[in-house]
Amino acid sequence: MDESVPALIRIHPRDNVLVLTRTARAGETVRFEGRAITLEAELPLGHKLAAEPIAQGEKVLKYGLPIGTATEDIPFGGHVHVHNLKSDYLPTFTHEAGHRFAEES
């Protein structure tokens, strides 16, 4: 693995998640802005790690925009995925009876 290539990028300055630019092995240490993150499990390109501690109930921002809400406290470097991030959209999207597009008249 070429260690000179950054393994993580922050897409938008407002983002509180980082995106893996390549597959990272279990036990591998990747760095972002000098801080080390050691991965517990192998994660492929495109997966997200917390850029800062994210509290339960806080919005997760990618592309500078909310992609959902954290369902538990996530530490710096923690894997952010279906186990701790919930869509703000899908509950209303999937239940036709309660479905309402915001402020639709």
């Binding site: 995106v19 893996l20 994660l43 492929p44 390109l45 495109g46 997966h47 997200k48 990618k62 925009l65 909310p66 992609i67 959902g68 952010v80 995925h81 279906v82 991030l85 919930k86 869509s87 703000d88 959209y89 899908l90 999207f93």
Partner: peptide, 9 residues
């Protein structure tokens, strides 16, 4: 797939 978690993402 590919690390995408939510529809809005």
């Amino acid at each position: 797939e590919g690390g995408l978690t939510t529809q809005e993402e």
